[in-house]
Computed example of a mutant assay.
Amino acid sequence: MNISVVVPAYNEVESLPELTNWIREVMQKNAFSYQIILIDDGSNDGSWEKIEELNQTHPEVKGIKFRRNYGKSAALNVGFAAAEGEVIITMDADLQDSPDEIPVLYKRIKEEKLDLISGWKKKRYDPLTKTIPTKFFNAATRSMSGINNLHDFNCGLKAYRKEVVKNIEVYGEMHRYIPVIAKWAGFNKIEEQVVEHRARKYGTTKFGFSRFINGFLDLLSIFFVGKFGKRPMHFFGSMGVLSFLLGTIMALWIIGEKLYDIANHIKIQREVTDQPLFYIALVAVILGSQLFLTGFVAELVSRNSAHRNYYQIEKEV
Rank of each mutant, 00 (worst) to 15 (best):
A9W: 00
W48K: 06
H307R: 12
S221C: 09
I262E: 13
F236I: 05
H265M: 10
I109A: 01
Y260P: 04
F137M: 14
W184G: 08
M91S: 03
L242Y: 11
R200L: 13
F224H: 09
A298M: 14
Q290M: 15
K72H: 06
Y125P: 05
E192K: 00
N138T: 04
E86C: 05
D274Y: 12
S210N: 10
D261I: 10
Q35E: 15
M91T: 01
A81S: 14
S145R: 02
G295K: 04
Q35H: 06
Y34M: 02
I313H: 15
A182C: 02
N188M: 08
N214H: 13
D274R: 12
R211C: 07
V7R: 06
A9F: 00
P179N: 05
I89Y: 01
L54K: 01
I36E: 04
I254A: 07
S302R: 14
N214M: 08
V13N: 11
G172L: 11
H307N: 14
L157S: 01
R67C: 09
N21L: 09
I262P: 05
G186T: 07
G247S: 07
H234M: 10
Q269D: 14
A83K: 02
A159W: 04
D261V: 11
I168N: 01
M27Q: 07
I262F: 13
E84Q: 13
A185W: 01
Y160R: 00
G63Q: 06
R303E: 10
D152L: 00
F244Y: 13
N30E: 13
S33P: 07
F66M: 01
M174L: 12
V194P: 01
N69F: 09
A140I: 08
E169V: 12
F216R: 05
E14C: 11
I255F: 14
H175T: 06
H307V: 12
G229D: 03
L242H: 10
K206R: 12
A93D: 11
E53G: 04
F137P: 03
L128A: 12
F80L: 04
P8T: 01
W120N: 08
I88S: 00
S15P: 08
I109N: 01
Y202Q: 08
L219P: 03
I262K: 14
N30K: 08
A284D: 13
K62G: 03
N69G: 04
Q96K: 14
Q56R: 15
N69V: 02
T90F: 07
K130N: 14
A251K: 11
G237W: 06
L150K: 02
S210E: 12
R67S: 12
D152C: 00
P59D: 00
Y177W: 15
V194H: 03
A281H: 03
Y160T: 00
E271L: 10
K122T: 03
E18N: 09
V5F: 02
L114A: 01
G295H: 05
V26L: 05
S4P: 02
K258W: 13
K267M: 11
F296T: 11
R142K: 06
E12G: 05
